[in-house]
Design a protein around this nucleic acid. Structure first.
Lengths: 130, 130
DNA sequence: CAGTATCCGCAGCGATACTG
DNA sequence: CAGTATCGCTGCGGATACTG
């Protein structure tokens, strides 16, 4: 692409900003609607399917299944099946997954902690603009 | 992290996982398709509209405008207009925005740096499953 | 319990054209 | 230069039902 995109791209040591860069795919998955929350749950420890579903409010089983599949495919999570009845499936972050999820977890935590300030800022903006 | 069995929500000091929690709104914006990349650009310094557009590959002006508006509304970015001809508009992260964008920036950087490993893991998975 | 399969609405997004 | 307006579509994601 163009040379104007040099600054941040260079700082990032890889052109993740480029439209065609494969790392954008991973970034999109990880920062997808549910990807972030699922990773943030898994970073607190191994979880079973139903446990994740219950902890992430509002996620459908379809989307959870889909999201987990993507994470496993990307090498960020492991899926281990205990062949019992009923079956037990546990999801664990890989080492890569843990590395990646750490800043993500900090983000979620930050948002949670500063929820009040965020709401206040938004209210101010809305009042200012009408 | 060891104190008995606390849910991730508790560990996060706010129920960001809750469906109705307002902080989920912010999280969704920040981790949206373009939100992440725009914030990652701005964390490297103030940028003008066209500069961001050029640096984030593939973003349309409509989406950039929309994304920036959300960030300003959330109190994460400032918009300063230099009333000249042609006009100059510069976007800067607020202090809150910088705090929030830091882990996000680390995430983008991590993905960029580990692009190779990520691709390899995915190829392995695809080969394994056919 | 841990998924898969199917249908489908709607909003997110891209493309294009226009404006202060 | 820095946006806004409008249209049209695609695919995300919700709801529901079914299976090993």
């Amino acid at each position: 692409m163009d040379e104007s995109r040099k600054t941040a791209a260079r700082l990032l040591s890889a052109d993740t900003f480029g439209r065609t860069c494969p790392s954008r795919k991973v970034l999109d998955q990880v920062t997808s609607r549910w990807g972030t929350l699922v990773l943030a749950v898994l970073v607190t420890g191994p979880h079973r399917f139903a446990a994740i579903r219950d902890e992430v409010g509002g996620i459908s089983e379809k989307m959870l299944s889909q999201t987990l599949k993507q994470l496993v495919r990307a090498g960020l999570a492991d899926r281990s099946v205990d062949a019992s009845v009923p079956p037990q499936v546990t999801y664990t972050l890989t080492e890569m997954g843990t590395d990646l999820a750490t800043p993500l977890y900090q983000l979620v935590r930050w948002v949670g902690l500063h929820n009040g300030e965020l709401e206040a800022a938004q209210r101010q903006y809305d009042a200012r603009t009408g």
